[in-house]
């Protein structure tokens, strides 16, 4: 295949990845990595480098709209980033002492369960206004909508959420991917933050987590410019489309999409663990 044929294919795959990633708060890696390795026969290390680029592009591309429209909560995002970035550093230290393939399988099973959970429960009612003193002091709150239908929310179970975020960061440091899923789950299921705020705030956060490991990937030579180019441009266009769609999307539909994508990701993790990739 020539570069002229290869580049448009990668662009279209990335467009789809950016679209899904920006809606679900998962980044584009779930789609980009397997598509490049399985469909196009790209070496896993180049695919991981491309996936990192796709996460940062999805995050920044969509967050511009989400922050302006009040879906990404900057205080919640910044506060929880302490946990995820610390976790990522800790994960990088652990990496040589932990059986990564066994961990992939365990994490895959956890994700499968969470994907199931996020669709099963929750009657989408009024947003949760937790009366948590720590949450009050840290102003982990916000409002959605406009005009007469403003709905206020405040995060609950701050310590639990913070701990899951630390675990999410550690896992992303150890396994390379998958931190977006745990971020959304921690905000949605533990802290009871409205679902769209959870996915948009996760989307806002993943760029910083990914930027933290960019230096390592660059110096290892994982980021190939010719491959990263269509990935970045495709993901950017896709994430802008996703960000336009989110406000009009039904939460129920969004949950279903999230569940399916996380389910696929879980199976990827389990396969990766078993094959030792």
């Amino acid at each position: 295949m020539t570069i002229l044929e290869f580049t448009p294919i990668v662009f279209v795959i990335s467009l789809f990845a950016g679209f899904l990633g920006s809606l679900t708060g998962l980044g584009g890696g779930v789609v980009v990595t397997p598509a490049l390795t399985i469909l196009l026969g790209v070496d896993i290390r180049y695919a991981i480098g491309a996936s990192l680029v796709s996460v940062i592009a999805t995050s920044s591309g969509a967050a511009a709209a989400y922050v302006r429209d009040g879906y990404s909560n900057m205080r919640i995002g910044m506060f929880l980033e302490i946990a995820t970035t610390l976790g990522a550093v800790y994960g990088a230290f652990l990496a040589t002492h932990v059986p990564v393939s066994a961990l992939s399988i365990v994490f895959g099973v956890v994700l499968l369960h969470s994907a199931w959970q996020s669709n099963r429960q929750h009657k989408e009612g009024a947003p949760h206004l937790a009366n948590d003193p720590l949450s009050r002091r840290l102003r982990l709150e916000g409002s959605l909508g406009g005009g007469t239908t403003i709905e206020k929310y405040r995060a609950g179970r701050v310590k639990t959420g913070f701990s899951i975020m630390f675990a999410a960061g550690t896992l992303s440091g150890l396994l390379g991917i998958g931190s977006g899923a745990l971020k959304v789950i921690a905000m949605d299921q533990a802290m009871r933050i409205p679902f769209k705020v959870s996915t948009a705030t996760s989307n806002f956060m993943i760029g910083v987590t990914a930027a933290a490991s960019a230096g390592i990937y660059l110096s290892r030579g994982y980021i190939a410019p010719g491959l990263a180019m269509p990935v970045m441009l495709g993901v950017l266009c896709g994430s802008l489309m996703g960000a336009r769609l989110l406000p009009r999307m039904e939460v129920k539909t969004l949950r279903r999409v999230f569940g399916v994508v996380v389910g696929v990701m879980a199976i990827e993790m389990i396969v990766k663990g078993i094959t030792g990739g």
Binding site: T2, I3, T7, Y46, G221, Y222, I223, A224, P225, G226
Partner: peptide
């Protein structure tokens, strides 16, 4: 620029070479 110059070259990502330092 890249497509104009190298568009007709074959794709070579199947084997990992590591990108040289000038690219990072």
């Amino acid at each position: 620029l890249y497509m104009v110059r190298y568009g007709n070259n074959p794709v070579a990502y199947a084997q990992f070479h590591g990108e040289p330092e000038i690219y990072w």
